[in-house]
C-alpha cells in the first residue's frame, strides 16, 4: 500500500490542481469570440449550401420549388453521360497543365522578388495587379493577345518560331487558357511563397555559401525544403482553382472549340443555370468535390506530410 503521508521533515504537498482544459482558458475564449463571426459566415455560406447541394444531388428540384427524391439516379445518369466524361477529361488535362505552370511561375517570380533592390515593393505591387483584375476583362484582353494577328503570334513570328491558332485549335486551347490562369494567379501565390522565403533564416544560406554551394544548389537544398509548407498551400490552392476553372473559359471560348475547353464547372453552370436541372448539376458538383478532396489528400501525403 502506498502511503500518502509526507515525511515529517518535508512540507506537505498541496493536492495537485486539475489541469484546466485548453478550451476553457481565458485566452481560448477570447480567440473563440474573435473567430466566431467567420465561423458563422463559413457555416452559413459554405458548409450549409454544400450540404444542401449534396441533398439536391439525390433528387429533382424544380425552380417552382418542388423536390422529388430520385435516389442515385442522377449519379447513374452522370456516369453514363459522355458529356461528363469529356468534361472530366478536359478538366484533368487543364489541371495538369495549369498547376505546374502556375506554381513554377509563382516560384520563379517569388525568387526574383526575394532580393534587396530599389523599388522592389513597387515591382511586387505591379506583379500583384493581375490578381485584382477582373477575370472577364483579362479574358477579353487575352482574346486579342491570342488572336491570329495578335501580339503573341507577332512576337513568335519575329523570333522565327511557328505561330498558332491558339483559341481555334482543340490542342492549343487548354495551354492558352492555362497561361491566362497562370498570369492571373501568380501574383497571389508569389506573395505566399515570398513570405515563406523571407522566413528562412539567412544563416542557412550563409553556411551553404561558405560550403561553396552554388545559387541553384542553395535554392534546391535550402529554399525548397524549407518552403514546403507555403508550397503545399499554393499547390492545394491551385488544384482547387484549376478544377473550378470557369470564368475566363466562359468569356474566351464558351467551352469550345468543339467542347475542348468544356470543364466540369462549365457543365455544372450549364446544367443548373441553363437547363434548370439542379439535381444533376449538384451531382456533378459532388463528384467534383470528391475529386478535389482526393487530389488534395494525395498532395498532402506526397508533399505536405512534414509541412
Amino acid at each position: 500500500m502506498v502511503s500518502t503521508i509526507a515525511p515529517a521533515d518535508q512540507p506537505a504537498l498541496a493536492p495537485p490542481r486539475r489541469k484546466q482544459p485548453m478550451w476553457r482558458s481565458p485566452g481560448a475564449v477570447a480567440a473563440y469570440i474573435f473567430i466566431l463571426p467567420y465561423v458563422i459566415f463559413f457555416v452559413a455560406f459554405r458548409i450549409l449550401p454544400a450540404l444542401y447541394g449534396v441533398a439536391l444531388s439525390f433528387g429533382d428540384y424544380s425552380l417552382s420549388g418542388t423536390f422529388e427524391l430520385l435516389g442515385l439516379d442522377n449519379y447513374v445518369r452522370l456516369f453514363a453521360d459522355p458529356l461528363f466524361w469529356n468534361a472530366l477529361r478536359v478538366t484533368g488535362i487543364y489541371a495538369l497543365i495549369a498547376i505546374p505552370l502556375t506554381v513554377a511561375i509563382s516560384l520563379g517570380m517569388a525568387q526574383l522578388c526575394n532580393r534587396v533592390l530599389r523599388g522592389m515593393s513597387f515591382y511586387r505591387s505591379i506583379f500583384f495587379l493581375p490578381v485584382v483584375t477582373s477575370p472577364v476583362l483579362s479574358g477579353i484582353i487575352f482574346i486579342w493577345l491570342f488572336s491570329t494577328d495578335g501580339p503573341i503570334n507577332t512576337a513568335l513570328s519575329a523570333i522565327g518560331l511557328p505561330t498558332g491558332s491558339w483559341l481555334q485549335s482543340s490542342v492549343l486551347v487548354l495551354p492558352a487558357l492555362a497561361l491566362v490562369s497562370a498570369w492571373m494567379n501568380f501574383g497571389y501565390n508569389m506573395l505566399i511563397l515570398l513570405a515563406g522565403m523571407l522566413a528562412i533564416p539567412q544563416e542557412y544560406y550563409e553556411a551553404a555559401q561558405l560550403d561553396g554551394a552554388s545559387p541553384w544548389r542553395r535554392f534546391r537544398s535550402v529554399t525548397l525544403p524549407l518552403l514546403k509548407p507555403a508550397l503545399f498551400f499554393v499547390l492545394v490552392l491551385e488544384t482547387v482553382k484549376s478544377f473550378q476553372a470557369f470564368d475566363t473559359i466562359y468569356v474566351m471560348t464558351s467551352g469550345g472549340p468543339v467542347r475542348s475547353s468544356y470543364t466540369l464547372t462549365y457543365m455544372i453552370y450549364d446544367q443548373g443555370f441553363g437547363y434548370f436541372d439542379f439535381g444533376y448539376a449538384s451531382a456533378t458538383g459532388v463528384v467534383l468535390l470528391v475529386i478535389t478532396l482526393v487530389f488534395s489528400l494525395i498532395q498532402r501525403r506526397l508533399i505536405g506530410r512534414n509541412a
Binding site: I140, Q168, V173, V251
Partner: peptide, 13 residues
C-alpha cells in the same frame, strides 16, 4: 474571318 468561329468577340473587336 476565322476568329469568330471559336471566340466570342466584342462587337467593336
Amino acid at each position: 474571318p476565322r476568329e469568330p468561329l471559336s471566340v466570342s468577340q466584342e462587337f467593336e473587336q
